[in-house]
Design a protein around this nucleic acid. Structure first.
Lengths: 246, 246
DNA sequence: AATCATAAGTGTCGTTTAAACACTTTTTAT
DNA sequence: ATAAAAAGTGTTTAAACGACACTTATGATT
């Protein structure tokens, strides 16, 4: 057993969550491996969006870069949630073939740090035209390449927990949103049904949720009032709000 | 800017928290650098306990190994809380000298994954006799080597948060403990004073806190009833308990 | 043996939050 | 004009929170 391991590679995997007012989605890349000579497709599966880090780049910067390359957006909500390091995490046959085909030592060890980010899908125009990147409903995903299914599940757990205790639901919505849309965020991510009146009573206590003098337009029902999230109010009041749920 | 970075080193840093019924403490190593020729001490400062990972070892296993080497204990509570990757995290003069003296390229990049662990100091006999490892009160620590002060603060934030939402206070106490000792855990870590009667009402609702037919001995006051934590009851009831504090 | 010092242990009340529950209103589409 | 769709709104009961003070059991001291 060597004292420590050289040639560990560090990569960042981004679990890019998106919300379209109906479902929680995640950005996945279609990984296609073709036979070098014949050009026949050997296999095709899906991966999270990820990349190795540059030499003078922090993990956070690498994650932001990946997101920028995908969406052209900056200052997206990004949260590191875990590091993945199982020595056998890239040892499945497809993954080994993929590593060989892309010129990497299939025995090298790649440690990956996971970030999740939150977006409203309608804010996003996917930029990474060179590859096949699309939104997929999280609930329909059965398996992914590498250990990415595991990473995704781990991101989901972290997201649920974060959502329960921090105001991050807004990050999955456009700047202006309705209370029903916000409620749906909680319902979809936590997998529960919430009572509309109780939900509204609860959010009414959140000072950082600012009602606007503006309503939905073009909907075939009573138009809802729009709200926005005020980060300033949140930062100001977060210390007061800290209560100890022992 | 290279496509990705070779020769990243991965290490694990363990923030080993201990509790002695009075204070929160942390295990630190006295890092002494001596001049190669004269043997004079060039500097001495404190680091967290950490190590590089072995070739076929997961991060979790590496953290458990470090803990075992320190204390001889297994199955200690261990929680990964963050990865530290700032490209300049080892660039202070002492750190550079230390890396050179220990035969490492001072320009190599070391990415460190942080774990914190929880122990009752009275359960522990420190084993790592070769080096100077001791408990230090967390509240008295002003600076540490490398970016370890930053890592420690980050561990503290993670610990406080975890303590608010999960029953981990027990991990800092002996198997059998009194309610006042448990209350003290919360008070010290969260930095608050709690009302004894309200605290007891609250913990009375925790089914996994088992009162024993046993009392403290040898104390110069009314002896307290002893309790223990039941992991089985906790696992059974945790799903019921999940409520959504939206 | 009596007293002291120390921490354990215990209950009430007013306030806040949680959870269950149904109807009216406003808009667009037909 | 009417229908369809989602917005918006209040009450009641139960549980939890937060503030607050005295009695009890033990070992130490005299």
């Amino acid at each position: 057993m060597s004292e420590w391991k050289l040639n560990n590679y560090i990569s960042v995997d981004c679990v890019v969550f998106g919300f379209d007012f109906e479902q929680l989605k995640v950005l996945l890349v279609d990984r296609v491996l073709k036979d070098e000579k014949t050009g026949n497709e050997l296999f095709s599966d899906l991966t999270l969006t990820g990349n190795h880090i540059y030499e003078h780049e922090s993990l956070e910067d690498a994650a932001a870069r990946i997101l920028f390359d995908l969406t052209g957006l900056e200052n997206i909500y990004l949260k590191q949630f875990a590091a993945f390091c199982d020595p056998d995490r890239l040892k499945r046959p497809n993954d080994q073939a993929w590593l060989r085909a892309s010129g990497r030592d299939p025995n090298s060890r790649i440690i990956s740090v996971g970030y999740y980010s939150l977006l409203a899908t309608k804010n996003v125009t996917l930029k990474w035209k060179g590859r096949n990147v699309k939104w997929y409903p999280v609930s329909e995903i059965k398996d992914l390449a590498f250990d990415h299914y595991n990473i995704l599940q781990s991101a989901l757990v972290a997201l649920r927990r974060e959502l329960l205790y921090e105001p991050i639901g807004f990050e999955l919505l456009p700047e202006k949103f309705t209370l029903s849309q916000l409620q749906k965020v909680y319902e979809v991510i936590l997998g529960v049904n919430l009572d509309k009146r109780n939900f509204r009573k609860k959010v009414a206590r959140m000072k950082y949720l600012i009602p606007l003098d503006e309503k939905q337009k073009g909907v075939a029902h009573k138009p809802a009032r729009l709200y926005m999230f005020s980060r300033e109010v949140y930062e100001k009041t977060r210390k007061e709000v800290l209560d100890f749920n022992i």
